[in-house]
Amino acid sequence: MTVESPIMHLVKPSVSAPMAGTAGSACKIKIHTSAVLQVLEIVSKQVLPENKRMIGTLLGIRLDDGLLFEIKDAFMVPCNETGDSIAIEEETHRKLYQLYKKAHLKEHVLGWFGSSEQIDNTTALIHDFYSHGTDRAYPSPALHLNVQYIKDGEVHVPEFTTYLGAVIGKSANNTQKMGWKTVSNNNSYVFTPIPHAIVDGSSTEQIAANFLKTKTVNVDSTQLSLDLSFLTTQLNAVTDNIDAILNRVESASLDALQNDDNLDLLRLLSNSLLSKPQILDDMEELRRHFHNHNQDVIMIEYLTKAVKEQIELIAKATSDADKKH
């Protein structure tokens, strides 16, 4: 089992949602960096009167039969808290989700995020809101992401915890209802921590995220200038890998070679290093291919430069042509 966050993952709770993943197998959550930043931006704007809570909706996709969640985006939903009851501005949630849905057809509401120091009754109330109804996580189980960045009144490095909430007790939904008060709220949930990993969607995103991580911290603002630092990091990583392997190979004694892991490593190395394409046997042929290829590229360069100069010439010629008259 891969563990990205320091959580011991025992077993997924049996969640009473029709589309929940098969109980007993491990659940995983991937959070995209952009969503993380968005969540942080929303919770950090928490300059609120006492009776307000900062929550929001998590959006993304479910994969693997409901066992893998990918959180891709988030938006804020206003929420008022008075004593034991809460009021979530359902209309705002619905409107923003529908607007978001237009541009991201394949994404759904996955759950919600908040920023509180402990799981309390209100957490369950909000979770209940996200677990039922249209435009919410239903019929899949709802996720809860908690960001904790204030400890004992001081700001700390934000910590993320992800939970899957499961209903405890029998839902009152099945019983026959009488009268006008038919809404039944089940606010007993058990929140099971689920491991999560913060990921980047594409290589381009990764480059952008790395740029943010390495260039923009510790300074107030950085100009977006594109340099080769990403390439350098990647090259260094490769060099480090090679060094590590060399070290291992050199330090290994003959006895250690009997070790299964080492044998696997050697097999992998010899497979990837010793297999070479057929063409490498015929050096002349290869050289000729390279030569032709380079000639082609140089030809393209030459013609492109010619086009560039033609354009300049056209601009000059037309502006001069007019002066004659």
Partner: peptide, 24 residues
């Protein structure tokens, strides 16, 4: 184009090293 982050975002970013996948 200048990038400016909130302090909390910067705090989070600095706690994360540059991510390196296996894909080079």
């Amino acid at each position: 184009v200048i990038i400016r982050n909130l302090k909390l975002v910067n705090l989070f970013l600095s706690s994360q090293g540059p991510s390196l996948d296996d894909s080079y």
